[in-house]
Design a binder for these strands. Sequence first.
DNA 1: TATGAATGAGGTTTCATTCAT
DNA 2: AATGAATGAAACCTCATTCAT
Lengths: 171, 171, 171, 171
Amino acid sequence: MIASKGLGAAATAAIAKEAGVSNGSLFVYFVSKAALLNELYVQLKTEMGDAAVADLPAAGSARELVRHIWTRWLRWATSNPDKRRTLAQLEVADEITLESHQLVREGQRRMAELMERSRATGPMKDEPISFVLLIVGAIADTTIDAMIRDPDSASARSDVAFEAVWRVLAG
Amino acid sequence: MIASKGLGAAATAAIAKEAGVSNGSLFVYFVSKAALLNELYVQLKTEMGDAAVADLPAAGSARELVRHIWTRWLRWATSNPDKRRTLAQLEVADEITLESHQLVREGQRRMAELMERSRATGPMKDEPISFVLLIVGAIADTTIDAMIRDPDSASARSDVAFEAVWRVLAG
Amino acid sequence: MIASKGLGAAATAAIAKEAGVSNGSLFVYFVSKAALLNELYVQLKTEMGDAAVADLPAAGSARELVRHIWTRWLRWATSNPDKRRTLAQLEVADEITLESHQLVREGQRRMAELMERSRATGPMKDEPISFVLLIVGAIADTTIDAMIRDPDSASARSDVAFEAVWRVLAG
Amino acid sequence: MIASKGLGAAATAAIAKEAGVSNGSLFVYFVSKAALLNELYVQLKTEMGDAAVADLPAAGSARELVRHIWTRWLRWATSNPDKRRTLAQLEVADEITLESHQLVREGQRRMAELMERSRATGPMKDEPISFVLLIVGAIADTTIDAMIRDPDSASARSDVAFEAVWRVLAG
DNA sequence: TATGAATGAGGTTTCATTCAT
DNA sequence: AATGAATGAAACCTCATTCAT
């Protein structure tokens, strides 16, 4: 619902109906609409993070590992455009608390560690890792949007963007 | 108001009060709340674009010109954190029409031309210029946020991020 | 409320208060104010039509049957001056849709059939039945208003008006 | 404006614009919107009444005189459908004061006198003349509406309706 | 006298939340 | 635990009227 109509048009009554439960039941499980949104946000973000680091080989060069993550990340997003779009909306919603944002950052520690290795000797070696992660995330999101908008060039765009990311990280 | 409380909390009554006019007067000048937001969006975006390309020297290497833009751009954003935050909210608001987004894109043609020259021989030479612009914009926004969050390192962060952008564009 | 203050003064808030429910509850049962008015119109008009043809004897001359209807019709209207006044307002309200007007016409088919028989050999035999019905309705409404305005002469006026109607129909 | 959009959609601002004067000027000449509507009502009704009794021959049978009025009356209404429609709206508007309604009745004394002669020996001789006038007016309005709706049969309908009116009046 | 910007009360409608069943 | 009717605050918007110029 959020993906198609936007956050503003997602009334609790409509959400409950779509979920096949009654209006009141929604508030049995979520103390408020904000709580529901926060939980949804953390869950989607976690799912995305898990998808990105799934099947990560134990060994391999830093480039190979980042490439692995990059590919899974973008694949998840383009395979789940609704979830991706919902995430984009929730990311900037002011109902999402600081706690949720922090919780999510915890869940992406695995990815952070990998980035850490990749940029350790590169030109961004003195920046906070959180900043580096945000930069890479921003590029990824932009790439994903372009891929969804223009599926025919999706694969090529993903490759070019990965090279750009690698130049950012490793020079 | 939008900057501090978010778009959801910006009721027309509150906006009018803040502006020192009556509720009704607001609708004398803007046909609807959406119209107000769209006009605000276009105006802020135009102001930002103008600030970025102000005092652009007639000659100079592509790198110097992009550096010039980058500096002004980030300076405007960090000097006007409220406007920057408002813009970030409006960018994803669904009240903003396609027309406004297109109008804004027209206004940034100057920047687009410069980017065009910079990436013409680089690794992104075959991508649509709109995609390249979006990538650079995403990096800029992320950098701006970091600069506002941590003003002490703002200057250093801006420099490092510019180098990253240059690597993205020119290899 | 409509009867006493007019349609313009019947705010949904006032209607809800009068009905003993909250403002919001009104919109649980009626999708909009227009929907409420339309439903009210159809219901009142149906009630009036039903009252007019109630207890209609199976046999009898055309004149007797029309007289029967005339009497019941005027009795209903004078016994329910509020409903009658409301109906008069709704009849010309532009919130009432074409659908509602047509729906109402269906419901008065019984009356139409009787009129049909009455004017079949009279001077209006070549006019559309809808026109004949409207003429009779206009005379009835005018008579009802006069009866409400001056209750003492109500009975006499009803009789005289019926004779006039009969002259219109049957010559 | 009232004719086309209905009374509800005739805002003073729109009326002023249509009239080619400023918003404020309207209130220089009319103390309130209600005053404007009342004046319009009286004026239109007077115009209609005047049109009906224009060129009235000094002599002639009662039937001929009523026929004369009937013809002019319906001609005016069908030639000025906008005015007729406006009048229909104003007739039931609750902004129109009792004074205006009475004023109008004065203006129709000429017509009343004629009706008086026509029904003097007929079956409605004992009814108040105001009631008789209202009945005739109701039939006229219904006929006019039918004529506007179906211009092809307008002439025939006018004739048939006049005969009906005559039967009402003179038996 | 003419103007038109400013006003603010009032209208309809939405929706997160509650609570008796 | 599940329900869904009821709620009322708050949102957006309209418009008759005023008044300084």
